[in-house]
Design a protein around this nucleic acid. Structure first.
Lengths: 148, 148
DNA sequence: ATTCATGCAAAGTGTTTGCACTAAT
DNA sequence: ATTAGTGCAAACACTTTGCATGAAT
């Protein structure tokens, strides 16, 4: 939905991070999808290629990579999710099928300035989450209820 | 920061919920603060008034009350938080002191419409989170890093 | 009297950590 | 050679659940 500003494995060494197989594959897996996977989903995918990787290593690397800004970590009702798309964008969660879609950023700068002015706070970044029904789920009747 | 649209304990009976002491106090505690407490923080507060209440009861009621729309449940990096202010509003999280402030809603309808038009999705609701430094923390030097 | 809500304890989740070993630098 | 990174298992924190008792209707 949005062009990706990818951060390749090359970026690792420059930051004093060793380029290990698990780390490389973990980053690749997260960057290769736009499904905003949870840790255990990344784990499952990584193990298809590196069967002996441990869940702990996946967690450790996701944390490290997020700290380095190579991917984004976001918490929602179902726990942690990871996003290889580090470009500014918003999210839309379908309340029926549960999928999370990237959507173009909506009025970012303007909104942030408005808040800064009203509150006197310094706004460094923000996050916008939309909830509703995706195109595929519109037209169907029953809706699965989810926490917001 | 925002006027509260409170939902008093009276609202309970009308929804087929029994008005028990634990339930009444839990709702009061959440509605009496704007600190967006986590479950265990509510638990601690409730026990000051009702020392024998169990943590399970707090969790069960927070879930029930949120399902009835009497309070809001939101997930962030530190787990579940509850908000007695059910009026439309956004949040500002101070990255230094960790406090969460309510801020007036920023361009809600307009933004939602924009996304709906761009994506073809049906937007039912949305959530905006700002991050930065609150007034009290501005001017201080060091900043505590937190997950987004 | 009925049945919803509670307290307790046990069981689940998802995530983190200690440690000895392995591998990248 | 050095030390960051790994796998494993145990520990952890948070949240949910089963069940018998108690309270609101």
């Amino acid at each position: 939905m949005i062009p990706k500003k990818g951060a390749g494995p090359e970026s690792l060494r420059g930051r004093g991070l060793r380029l290990t197989e698990p780390r490389r594959v973990i980053l690749e897996v997260v960057c290769a999808t736009d499904s905003h996977p949870c840790a255990s989903s990344v784990y499952r995918e990584v193990r298809k290629r590196l069967p002996s990787v441990s869940l702990a290593t996946v967690y450790r690397n996701l944390r490290t990579l997020a700290a380095e800004g190579l991917l984004l970590e976001r918490a929602d009702a179902d726990g942690l999710r990871f996003d290889g798309n580090v470009a500014r964008h918003d999210h839309f969660t379908c309340l029926r099928c549960g999928r999370v879609f990237d959507v173009p950023p909506a009025g970012a700068a303007r909104t942030r300035r408005a808040v800064a002015v009203r509150t006197g706070f310094e706004v460094l970044h923000h996050r916008v989450e939309f909830y509703g029904r995706c195109a595929a789920c519109r037209g169907r009747t029953r809706r699965t209820t989810r926490a917001v």
